[in-house]
Design a protein around this nucleic acid. Structure first.
Length: 155
DNA sequence: GCCAACGTTGGC
DNA sequence: GCCAACGTTGGC
């Protein structure tokens, strides 16, 4: 069982939007970065924990907890010319891009802001801080526990 | 809206 | 394979 952080702009798709989705689930589509793709395709497994992060927000921060319910499979939005994430290089016989499905578990009692994450002992090495551009990133078990505790969740 | 950091593209 | 130009992300 591993832990991940996934970013979404709340103006586009927030944790509340996930809570209101059918079955509280969604497919995590539209990732067009090779490092993130490799994680989606090869590493992220059903049952893994997800920190749902609001980027480009006021303030930005971790908004909720989700879990992976389906492992990597081809991102079909890349095949659709009408989709904003269309990529002609990706074909159904040889997909370039992958996605997973996630399910909301619970919102955090309060948003854990980026400023708090930066200030927290034990979170200095979070990929969020060291490679801020990566939209799907690994989280260590220790970081996972600290984030939950700081946000007021039981371990 | 600005801008720094980073990833990707393409000329050579 | 190098690197400059360009595009995107995301904090502020």
């Amino acid at each position: 069982m591993n832990y991940w952080l996934m970013k979404s702009e709340p103006d586009v798709f927030s944790f509340d939007d996930l809570m209101r989705s059918p079955g509280r689930r969604t497919c995590w589509d539209g990732v067009r970065n090779y490092q993130a793709r490799n994680l989606l395709r090869d590493a992220i497994q059903p049952g893994d924990g997800v920190l749902f992060y609001h980027s480009n927000a006021n303030p930005s921060g971790v908004a909720g907890i989700a879990r992976v319910v389906r492992g990597g499979y081809p991102d079909h939005t890349a095949f659709d010319p009408a989709d904003p994430h269309y990529d002609p290089k990706s074909r159904p016989e040889a997909p370039t891009w992958y996605m997973v499905d996630i399910e909301a578990v619970e919102p955090l009692p309060r948003l854990l802001t980026l400023a708090e994450i930066k200030a927290a002992k034990g979170l200095e090495k979070m990929v969020l801080l060291t490679n801020s551009r990566l939209s799907v990133q690994p989280v260590t078990e220790s970081e996972w526990r600290i984030v939950r505790r700081l946000a007021g969740l039981k371990p």
